[in-house]
Design a protein around this nucleic acid. Sequence first.
DNA 1: GAAATTTACGGTTTTCGTAAAAATC
DNA 2: GATTTTTACGAAAACCGTAAATTTC
Lengths: 291, 291
Amino acid sequence: MDASDLKIFEAVARLGSMKRAAEELNTVQSNVTARIKALEDDLGLSLFQRHARGVKATGPGQRMLPFAGRVAKLLADARAAAKDDGMPNGPLQIGSLETTTALRLAPLLSRFTLAYPEVQLVVTTGTTARLVTDVLEYRVDGAFAVGPIEHPDLERQVAFTEELVLVTPPTVTVPQALAKSGTLRTIVFQYGCSYRQKLEAILSSMGIANAKPLELGSLDAMIACVSVGVGVTLLPRRVVAHAVKENKVLAHALPQIQSHAETLFIRRKDTYTSSAMKAFLKLCEAQEEVG
Amino acid sequence: MDASDLKIFEAVARLGSMKRAAEELNTVQSNVTARIKALEDDLGLSLFQRHARGVKATGPGQRMLPFAGRVAKLLADARAAAKDDGMPNGPLQIGSLETTTALRLAPLLSRFTLAYPEVQLVVTTGTTARLVTDVLEYRVDGAFAVGPIEHPDLERQVAFTEELVLVTPPTVTVPQALAKSGTLRTIVFQYGCSYRQKLEAILSSMGIANAKPLELGSLDAMIACVSVGVGVTLLPRRVVAHAVKENKVLAHALPQIQSHAETLFIRRKDTYTSSAMKAFLKLCEAQEEVG
DNA sequence: GAAATTTACGGTTTTCGTAAAAATC
DNA sequence: GATTTTTACGAAAACCGTAAATTTC
């Protein structure tokens, strides 16, 4: 059994199909079949149940699956450690929330890329739920997400603190007026977004429970929708500051307990901390003191 | 870079020689050279400095070395996890002290092997210092060793508690007489044995500091040497009980603080716990209550 | 010159990709 | 009959072992 075997195995298990795994791995299916078969022969047990629509991991396959990502990450870490002479360099994969990226990351990234040009920084965005699994399953080295996040394998540090405000159309001058509105919608990112749950809790505490969510994929679209009266949303004050100034929307302050949101930077505890990551963490700390 | 590359790399780094690594790996040196060279080309840096007497790991090589064992262990764990259906089976590597093996392990092992015939149990003996590194570097799944052992990566549990006694020739009826003896020797296992340090501390507290150590490799030899008057040693009471009964040696009780020794079972925190290991731990707990 | 590493090279094994066959719904 | 996996097979690449060359003390 080798690391490349596990890589193929992981793709097949994740995609549930040898054909699609072959596409993702840039090879042909006969190859995938052969490698899986060889792996099964080596282990002396079957890893997949074959049906007409694809394959499904058996018990042994499911038990082996968590190791695939770890082996791949460990090999990548070995390479990184060898190349890491103390000067930050090499790849660094960071995940972030859309709002955090828009609001806080730009100055951090510009300073980082300027200071450490040898680091190939890649930032991907997603919801908190998605980012947490990305970190846990070694797809990114670390991520910004909104707490509370509790997991025994994760290390947390507060990166930024935000004041969340209730964002309404300019016609809604007092938030209490929302209770009377007939067709109120909550405008949120897709499922897994942590602001969505907060917003629902806040509205519920205001006696509003009938709001239907509208899922949008970009901040600008969300603000635009609020502006024309489609519904309300919950966002950091600084994100909507510009739209408020132009009278497109209104921002309503919330009680401290509801408005306080901490953006955490999370990492797996058991991974190698490269010089690039160390430098990034240091810059984050400095940033927190400023912002 | 692949797991097999790291395996070869690890052997070369550890042995400091491609020739000897080739012997250990059951291959020829040209092969080792080629694989190392390919690995260096792949990484784009040199892993070894070549001299006439062998090779030495460069900075990058030293940084990569710790990953080699981890990758190998993780692959072995992946295989074990796949084969582990809840019934204990497969290989289980346990390290143990010579004294613990003689004194406590026999009943534990006989019960374990009887209950779980599918487990291929391998017990190796060594000093505490050696066993700790064996566990840390993934050469054994767990080990019995004498505390105190503090390490952030290790999980400890008390397996047995022993009463240590000062073992002297039958002619020495009171331990205080030792101080007058001219050529006293301490009879100990090789360097790294935890009893050795205890014995030196005890003698020192008795005002004896000039004792020279004699290193022996077996318990029987140690007891025989004490019996004929070569020196003194420190061992669990139960180990020497038989020799005491035959008047070959005398066992002198020590103050509780000096005599109390805990045998710990240590494991790495970050490793997969197989069903076989779970069963072994359970039996250890049961054993502790008995003994 | 002795001990070790490196290079050269033929044979073997493994892996890859095309193409055809078999299985399942 | 359409989708997916499996098998067959020739080409390419990687790997292994023998033997000779090179380096370094």
